[in-house]
Write a protein that binds this DNA or RNA. Structure first.
Length: 592
RNA sequence: GACCCGAUAGUGUAAUGGUAGCACCGCAGUUUUUGGUACUGCUAGUUCAGGUUCGAAUCCUGGUCGGGUUACCA
């Protein structure tokens, strides 16, 4: 466990420091001092924003030697499904957040919550309201006008008790009545205007089946779930700030007159993660899937955990990103470039290098036969990872016919273009130095073949020996390449940002009235390359790191980081997703 | 026009009454068998107006701007 550092503490760490100093939750070191949780509703897939909540809560428990819990807030049977429970559990595990004990469910506490609700009725702090939903809504007033009391507000407790029991027994239709807390219909905080605690839902619950006909509302249930589980710091997002007084009221109401009060966790709100070029609203993500803009919830362009995973992001990179964005109450937007940097950083250290040519053009070595048999293959040693010597080396086959990247050749290159052109010499990485003396074009003007000579003194890509005057020849550029004869074909999916603007959530100033976030979808977010040419070592796993999630990731030299897609079949068709490009200084030079 | 919350380089975050730092971006350079990596340097900031104080990003008052709140969702 990392000891908390004395400085640079975020505001939540500072609160916990103070709680530990005051002994609020027990003595330091007894394991009760910090208990956090991630409390998702199982009604959808997790996204990058949830990842931050998970990493934050898990990280705090880890840092302070406490416990982190995973609890499903399954209080609405109409929306929730086992399928989502399974995917969420898998995502949290993949992120590396280890929860204490079993996975927990709010539905396991329904009996206790019901008992406390009965106590509140008996204390005169709750009542059964038989108004229609519309009447309740209008009776609540507005942000500028107070509400009015329900005609059922002062009915005898015995009457409410009887109706509440019958609600539970399933005697009434959905919406016939609700249980409400009796607080203050004129409160400036709308959440305190006699909030609903229970509503009738005659629907099967994914865990409790047909046992219940009433289900607790979030505001009533959530604080109780935390209390039951011994949570100390209930961390949630900013929009629940106005709910905290209610959460506190409920616990105080239960504890009124109780000899052994139930635990009163402290709710702390922080600003949710909002990365640029990304939408996280469940509605919008669903629309992207339903309208077929992406192939599914795990499309590698999606900001879902499953999408990021499929795209090749590592749990480490997501953790680093969520930490880099900080913990505050200020709602800013977070540069998605940080996430891209985080994965580059991580993969740079651990991903094996391979060579892949995405847009191949043929290179013929015209003097190949002068130095040996024309059809010979040489095997040159190539470093697997210059950042990690222990990753070892591999052999790459070199022959007289190769592929290089089409954009690495120009017929009439500018001075700053360090690559191949007529008369120019470049290094083929781990190959030889070659010089172009001719090229062939088809009728359409496309270059179909580049003719070069190689220098046998530069084997492995090494510099030639000094000339008679002691001068060593130099090249400015190094290209990646693949032997034509040995090339392995693969499909490569070039993934890019899904949106073209930083804030796809916001309509631009001059936007038409019917503007939609779909208008700023990036039409080029996924370019599929049907047959890229890869070096044959890609077919062997020897020397690759063991990835905890089993996803094989590589750096294709000079191009970026790629992983093998879930659709890939090693016997049929290899498919790669581009996680992120390498930084590209040439692209900047070119723009000028 | 009610209530709650917030505001520090372009972006994100530290400094909690005592020299405004850090990261990313951007710009310039060094190294380099990836125009990658690594390294060096540079640019640039306390929302405004008062007040308290020897001293204010920090405390107080007021303004401005931004966000949230009016489900029988969570």
């Amino acid at each position: 466990m990392d000891m908390p550092s004395a400085t640079n503490r975020n505001f939540i760490e500072q609160i916990i420091d103070a709680d530990i100093a005051s002994g609020k939750w027990g003595q330091p070191g007894d394991g009760s001092v910090v208990t956090t949780r991630f409390p998702p509703e199982p009604n959808g897939y997790l996204h990058i924003g949830h990842a931050k909540a998970i990493c934050l809560n898990f990280g705090l428990a880890e840092q302070f030697g406490g416990r982190f819990l995973l609890r499903f807030d399954d209080t609405n049977p109409a929306k929730e499904e086992q399928e989502f429970v399974d995917s969420i559990v898998g995502d949290v595990r993949w992120l590396g957040a280890a929860w204490a004990g079993e996975v927990r469910f709010a539905s396991n506490y329904f009996d206790r919550m019901f008992g406390w609700a009965v106590e509140l009725i008996e204390k005169g702090l709750a009542y059964v309201d038989q108004q229609t939903p519309e009447q309740i809504r209008t009776g609540r007033g507005s942000v500028t006008e107070p509400g009015v009391n329900s005609p059922y507000r002062d009915r005898p407790a015995s009457e409410s008790l009887d109706l509440f029991a019958r609600m539970k027994a399933g005697e009434f239709e959905d919406g016939a009545m609700v249980l409400r807390a009796k607080i203050d219909m004129a409160s400036p905080n709308m959440n305190l205007r006699d909030p609903v605690m229970y509503r009738i839902v005659n629907a099967a619950h994914h865990r409790t089946g047909d046992t219940w006909h009433i289900y607790p509302m979030y505001d009533w249930a959530h604080g109780l779930e935390d209390s039951i589980e011994g949570v100390t710091h209930s961390i949630c997002t900013l929009e629940f700030e106005n709910h905290r007084p209610l959460y506190d009221w409920f616990i105080d109401a239960i504890n009124e007159g109780r000899s052994e009060p139930i635990r009163h966790p402290q709710q702390i709100e922080f600003a949710r993660l909002e990365p640029t070029y990304i939408v996280t609203s469940k509605r919008k993500l669903k629309q992207l899937v339903d309208d077929g803009h992406v192939s599914g919830w795990d499309d590698p362009r999606m900001p879902t955990i499953s999408g990021l995973r499929r795209r090749g992001f590592t749990p480490e990179s997501i953790r680093i990103f969520t930490e880099a964005t900080g913990v505050t109450k200020y709602k800013g937007t977070h540069d998605v470039g940080l996430l891209e940097n985080a994965v580059r950083d991580h993969l740079n250290k651990v991903a094996p290098r391979r060579m892949a040519v995405l847009d191949p053009v043929k290179v013929v070595i015209t003097n190949w036969a002068e130095f040996g048999q024309a059809g010979r293959t040489e095997y040159h040693e190539a470093v697997n990872n210059p950042e990690d010597e222990s990753a070892g080396t591999r052999k790459v086959p070199f022959t007289g016919e190769l592929y290089i990247e089409r954009e690495d050749f120009m017929e009439d290159p500018p001075k700053k273009f360090f690559r191949l052109g007529p008369g120019r010499e470049v290094r083929l990485r781990y190959g030889y130095w070659i010089r172009c003396h001719d090229y062939v074009k088809d009728d359409a003007g496309n270059v179909t073949e580049i003719r070069c000579t190689f220098d046998p003194q530069t084997k492995g890509g090494n510099s030639p020996p000094p000339d008679a005057e002691g001068k060593v020849r130099k090249v400015k550029g190094t290209l990646h390449w693949v032997s034509a004869e040995h090339a392995v074909d693969a499909e490569v999916r070039l993934i890019d940002r899904l949106f073209t603007v930083e804030q796809p959530n916001r309509a631009p100033k001059d936007a038409p009235a019917d503007w939609s976030f779909l208008d700023v979808l990036n039409p080029d977010s996924m370019r599929v390359i049907a047959s890229a040419k890869l070096e044959p070592a890609i077919l062997e796993t020897a020397g690759e790191p063991t990835w905890r999630d089993g996803i094989r990731r590589f750096q294709f030299e000079r191009l970026g980081y790629f992983c093998i897609d879930a659709d890939s079949d090693p016997n049929e068709k290899l498919i790669f997703n581009r996680t992120v490009t390498l930084k590209d200084r040439w692209a900047k030079v070119k723009r000028k």
